[in-house]
Simulated scan of single mutants.
Amino acid sequence: MFKNIASDVLGLSDIGAIIQPKDFHKVESDDYILYEDGEKIYFLIKSKSDEYCFTNYALIHLDGASATSKKRLLKRYSYKSNPITDVTLETAGTVDLDIEIKFNIGNISYSIDVIKQDIEALKDLYKTLVKISSIQAENQHYLHYAQQSLDLASKSLKPYTNNALPDEQFKAINLYSFNWLKKSHHEFMRKDFSEVFDQFINK
């Protein structure tokens, strides 16, 4: 009992370590990477019960029920569908043996403890997540502007479309609107953040 309490106080309960790229193929997360689709591991934290794998497309979390259980729950959060927010880094105090990175991805909150010797590498992950968060927030504004511009264009055309449009004109307007929204979605709902990871992780 007292050993468990001491572990919690000192931050020893389930501290993760950063895995080096040369060892990525040895972790379980490697089995779930979409290599066929261009996905690549850039950063990986492994503790006794969990793996946190940051790829250019997503965060893959292998969630262990306990340190002694072999069961794993695979969770995948794509950056395209789950924006990153509220990224913070907590450094170690005098008696602490761990540091902590916190962030939200979609509506899920993460708080990951890492051995304090890995502080420099964790700073790089912090900067990466902050940059991705900034790009995602900016792109959401652009996507909103694209939708607004289409709405304004539609309203501007309304006086000229009170009478029934010929089928060909209706189809042309409908197709243009669809392609405009599709193009905006593709441009501003970003899937791949390789260049951000290369900028801060593989610098």
Results as ranks from 00 to 15, higher is better:
153 A>G: 15
70 K>E: 11
203 K>Y: 12
142 Y>K: 14
37 D>V: 03
119 I>N: 08
199 Q>P: 01
25 H>D: 12
188 F>D: 04
129 L>G: 02
168 E>N: 11
23 D>G: 01
95 V>E: 08
79 Y>A: 04
19 I>W: 06
144 H>R: 15
161 T>W: 06
37 D>I: 02
101 I>H: 04
160 Y>N: 09
140 Q>A: 03
92 A>W: 02
143 L>G: 11
150 L>Y: 06
79 Y>V: 00
181 L>F: 05
197 F>D: 04
74 L>I: 13
179 N>Q: 13
45 I>Y: 03
89 L>Y: 03
24 F>S: 00
122 L>Y: 01
3 K>Y: 14
109 S>P: 09
180 W>I: 06
189 M>L: 14
24 F>E: 02
93 G>P: 04
188 F>N: 07
33 I>V: 08
203 K>G: 12
116 K>S: 10
149 S>M: 10
200 F>S: 03
14 D>W: 02
99 I>V: 14
174 N>M: 06
101 I>Q: 01
137 A>M: 10
45 I>V: 02
67 A>K: 15
170 F>I: 07
203 K>P: 09
197 F>N: 01
33 I>C: 02
23 D>I: 00
48 K>P: 04
80 K>H: 09
156 S>N: 12
91 T>S: 13
67 A>Y: 08
59 L>Q: 02
77 Y>I: 01
12 L>D: 03
123 K>E: 14
176 Y>C: 07
102 K>M: 11
90 E>V: 12
187 E>G: 07
170 F>P: 06
154 S>C: 03
191 K>I: 07
118 D>H: 12
2 F>Q: 12
60 I>N: 02
23 D>M: 04
79 Y>F: 11
95 V>Q: 07
29 S>H: 05
136 Q>K: 07
172 A>W: 10
46 K>M: 08
176 Y>P: 05
8 D>I: 12
170 F>M: 13
23 D>V: 01
102 K>P: 05
21 P>H: 04
141 H>D: 08
194 S>Y: 04
120 E>S: 14
34 L>E: 13
120 E>T: 12
176 Y>W: 11
14 D>Q: 00
167 D>Y: 05
151 D>E: 15
81 S>W: 09
16 G>K: 00
77 Y>A: 02
14 D>F: 04
50 D>H: 10
74 L>D: 05
101 I>V: 05
117 Q>K: 15
4 N>E: 12
150 L>H: 05
104 N>F: 14
